[in-house]
Design a protein around this nucleic acid. Structure first.
Length: 167
DNA sequence: GCCAACGTTGGC
DNA sequence: GCCAACGTTGGC
């Protein structure tokens, strides 16, 4: 029996454009960035246990005017130790993360392409086909969220996106 | 194990 | 700047 190939999974990842906009990811010299500094167990668990190379990412601008999805990215590594947790000078330093038993994990992501226009949070809320999508739920704070294949397709449709959907 | 206090997120 | 909705911490 040949092993069944895992279906592609989809995610939404938030970033504050004042700190790290989608354009910064696009202009990374290495073509990718370490998605480090996440200090939330649910988000960590998804990065550690569920994300696989090739998974699709909706790159979301939070704390923005307006907030919304800016473009597409892709997971390019599986989860590995977040070294920033050990650095006392890092904003996300965690004295409880022991290098012998690291607590925090991150993945690397690369940009696929920006949308021509931001798909605003309001536009997502206004689309009845996206009822139940996590990012539009009141109080939704998780910086890494699963996205269904249907939601992924619908967002691309809203964006009028005709480009490639994976690297 | 409960839960109040506190800190953070993030839309508005 | 406000505040609702969380997640975490720590006393008990």
């Amino acid at each position: 029996m040949s092993p069944k190939k895992r279906a592609r999974h989809y995610w939404l990842m938030k970033s504050e454009p004042d700190k790290y906009p989608f354009s910064a990811l696009e202009s990374e010299p290495s073509g990718k960035t370490m998605w480090d500094g996440v200090r939330n167990y649910q988000a960590r668990n998804m990065m550690r246990d569920e994300m696989k190379v090739g998974d699709g990412v909706l790159f979301y601008h939070s704390n923005a005017k307006p907030p919304g999805i800016r473009g597409l990215a892709e997971i390019v590594t599986e989860g590995y130790t977040d070294q920033s947790a050990f650095d006392p000078d890092d904003a996300h330093f965690d004295p409880k993360s022991d290098p012998e038993k690291p607590r925090w994990v991150h993945v690397d992501i690369s940009a696929i392409a920006p949308f021509n226009e931001l798909i605003s949070l309001q536009a997502l809320k206004d689309n009845p086909r996206l009822d139940g999508m996590e990012v539009i739920r009141k109080g939704s704070r998780l910086s890494v969220q699963p996205v269904s294949e249907r939601e992924w397709g619908e967002v691309l449709k809203m964006a009028g996106y005709k480009g490639k959907t994976s690297l």
